[in-house]
Write a protein that binds this DNA or RNA. Structure first.
Lengths: 194, 194
DNA sequence: GTCTATACCACGATAGAC
DNA sequence: GTCTATCGTGGTATAGAC
């Protein structure tokens, strides 16, 4: 239940907070933020409802934690891509990852895009945090295009990420994974042509 | 209050139902579906809350009416574009319309895309109705590319609409109308190059 | 730290006077 | 056809026993 380190520090049971964040990420993605209740998240995390408030005082704090999890997730993906030498291969590998996840996109769209879209319709300043994560992705893509010697790297990076966000929405709306696959091929050919 | 025709037919005050639909479209767009209450719509439409239920028995019916309004709106846009002779000019005129509306995109994204995205996260079959409207737009774009002699017309149409949906999301997330303007220019050059 | 019970409020929807 | 008052439900968040 408690590992040796945590037991000595009189901390909470390890994993509980993490389970809540994981559950929040998943349920926000599948149901949307507004439709999910604290009880939904607690159930998926297998934590009693009332206990959630020990870890997160408000629903907004759970949203913020979910954004943080997406940021770490993106860091991991980028670190993996950086192991490739050629910027073209990096970008095409990123695209391949999108295509590989197309069945999820069919059901719920882009995990991070749908979250960002929902957050911009809120009053709280949480949408700014989501935008930062999105910006990190665009910045990374821009760097790859710059290495390729493109002076219009920023514009190309924005266009690439926009294409992914848009095709995620259409794939989701039309429930057709083939759209994502075809657009992935098209974008890969485009990268090679630059 | 009642015009001569309606008075004789013992109908409801003219415009009241229309005002409710208009208000629904606007408030759903600005706040998102889940966050808007019947009271919100009633207030904007300047109709007493309880009276809403005379026109629409459920919130879902208001959503359906809003989708219908978007469909009619799209029909109007397309009819306007059809007055141009060249398919390239039609597509570029469509794009110009998107760029002209960039300040709204900064605040709330694409009026119809954000609605569609939200509806796919619902249980009801309402998302299918939204998808039909989106499909009508893709179909129209496909026809233009086909007239241009492209055998890959469908793929190009999907890519075009996806780019718009995606750049709307980024324009909204980053609060930067310049993104939409730059992407509009890029897409116009792309159309000319085909 | 954990969990139950519950306060409190906002929303969708309805009843029924006018 | 219009409008007020209200019911029932379900949500966030808290109090306080363990």
């Amino acid at each position: 239940m408690t590992n040796s380190v945590d037991a000595e520090r009189t901390q909470t049971k390890p994993g509980k907070r993490e389970r809540l964040v994981e559950a929040a990420v998943r349920v926000f993605y599948e149901q949307g933020i507004e439709k999910t209740t604290i009880a939904d998240i607690a159930r998926v995390a297998e934590v009693p409802v009332g206990n959630v408030y020990y870890y997160f005082k408000t629903k907004d704090q759970l949203i913020e934690a979910a954004i943080g999890a997406h940021a770490r997730s993106l860091d991991q993906i980028v670190a993996e891509l950086e192991r490739l030498d050629d910027p073209r291969e990096r970008l095409k590998s990123l695209i391949q990852g999108w295509v590989d996840g197309r069945e999820l996109a069919v059901r719920f769209g882009c995990p991070f895009g749908s979250l960002t879209a929902e957050l911009t319709k809120r009053a709280d300043p949480l949408d700014g945090h989501a935008a930062e994560v999105m910006r990190a992705l665009v910045d990374w893509a821009e760097r790859q295009f710059a290495i390729m010697g493109r002076s219009d790297a920023r514009e190309l990076a924005v266009a690439l990420i926009a294409s992914y966000q848009g095709i995620s929405l259409l794939t989701n709306a039309f429930r057709d994974p083939g759209l994502m696959a075809a657009e992935g091929d098209r974008l890969a050919r485009w990268i090679d042509s630059l």
